[in-house]
Amino acid sequence: MLSSHTLNNKRLRLAYFDCVLTSSVLLIMSTLITSVAQAAEVISIKPAPNLHIRTLAASCAACHGTNGNPINVKNFTALPILAGLDTQYFITQMLAFKSGERPATVMHHHAKGLTIDEINLLAIYFSQQKRISGISPKPQLLKADHE
């Protein structure tokens, strides 16, 4: 299943590599880049900024809040704060969702659709986000002139 998800688009790989390079997490680079040869090939071309991971990460906001800072609702199960989360913890949990090792109601449906590269880069992206308290908009009375 993995191979069908592993993106073989060269331009995309450039984008991943850029994120790794600019992430100042070079130490774990070897675990993130599956092939050294691949990385070498990438260096010679100037990569675009990593829009791919930023947009993907932002689609998690519906449950995990803007930039991974969720609103936790009183009396309801709290959702994990992804902002500032330890990269290794994020990767371990996502891989456990992906393999089915960690049981889930929803997260396995997302983890299984992501590539290993994407999980690694999401880990870096979220670890770099600042933890702040999310704000809720205040409910209002529906006005008479509304549709």
């Binding site: 519906a62 969720p70 999310g134």
Partner: peptide, 28 residues
């Protein structure tokens, strides 16, 4: 992508997640 899907069964836990979904998407 492969790997998506639906709940096994209705649950109160998922209603809790649904409430979190609504509150977080409204905030976002």
């Amino acid at each position: 992508a492969d790997g998506g899907g639906v709940s096994d069964k209705p649950s109160e836990l998922e209603a809790s997640y649904a409430a979190a979904w609504a509150n977080n998407i409204w905030s976002d």
